[in-house]
Amino acid sequence: MAKILAGVGTSHVPAIGAAIDLGKTQEPYWQPIFAGYEKSKQWLKEVDPDVVILVYNDHATAFALDVVPTFALGIADEYQPADEGWGPRPVPVVKGHSELSRHLGTSLIFDHFDMTIVNEMAVDHGLTVPLSLMCGQPEAWPFKVVPLCVNVVQYPPPTGARCFDLGKAIRKAVEAFDEDLKVVIFGTGGMSHQLHGERAGMINREWDNKFLDDLSADPQRLTQIPHVEYIRETGAEGVETVMWLIMRGALNEQVEEVHRHYHVPGSNTAVGHIILENR
């Protein structure tokens, strides 16, 4: 049987990808960000998952405004790194686990989550930056990926409670998959950041860290946070953090925080990262 072993939360700032690709990770500006992922890379190597379910959002790359799917599940065999306007990132092709994806799609829809199904999609920094942060620069990614793309660009994104419930349904589906697979789920995006308007640059370190605390201490509280609070307290684009709740919903009620990292700034954004293991 397939089993979800752990969850990873991480920001997916595009400039972090550029810093990796341009060999700047040891520069004083970037070094403290990457230092916080050293333990994570080691941890992931030891867990050695077969599949990562990667929850992220597309940033006007594969999807535009003509059609806006709230939850889009990739079921392809592979996904190409996208050209976001300055050429694709020099990272390996992302190999899908199509069978698991198709099983998830079926199970989720029968579980009342009406997923949009995607057979072909380029993946932008939202998906590839977390892979780089957690794996470094390998020749090939060391696991297969099931991409789950969430709309957080066009307001309103799905609610925190809905995201959490989707996580639960994902867990149920994974556990019904008839192959021995070690699965880790990533929730990405966030943490506090506002990228537009006269209030650009907003960061709320205190709010972010309370969120990180409550991922293990009180996830139910997090599911009740309304969008307006994310926007007011953490910046308009900080509402991305709602995606972490899909990851959290897919884990046990009791989890153990095995690693945390928080750093400001990563370009315009607070970089937050956590690893939660099922207990």
């Binding site: 537009h196 640059g201 960061i203 700034p265």
Partner: peptide
């Protein structure tokens, strides 16, 4: 980002290094 909030790129970058715009 700096242009949108009426700051030079340099001042904006400095604000971010100092922890960003507070809530």
């Amino acid at each position: 980002a700096g242009k949108m909030c009426g700051m030079s790129q340099e001042d904006y970058a400095k604000m971010m290094l100092n922890g960003g715009r507070p809530a």
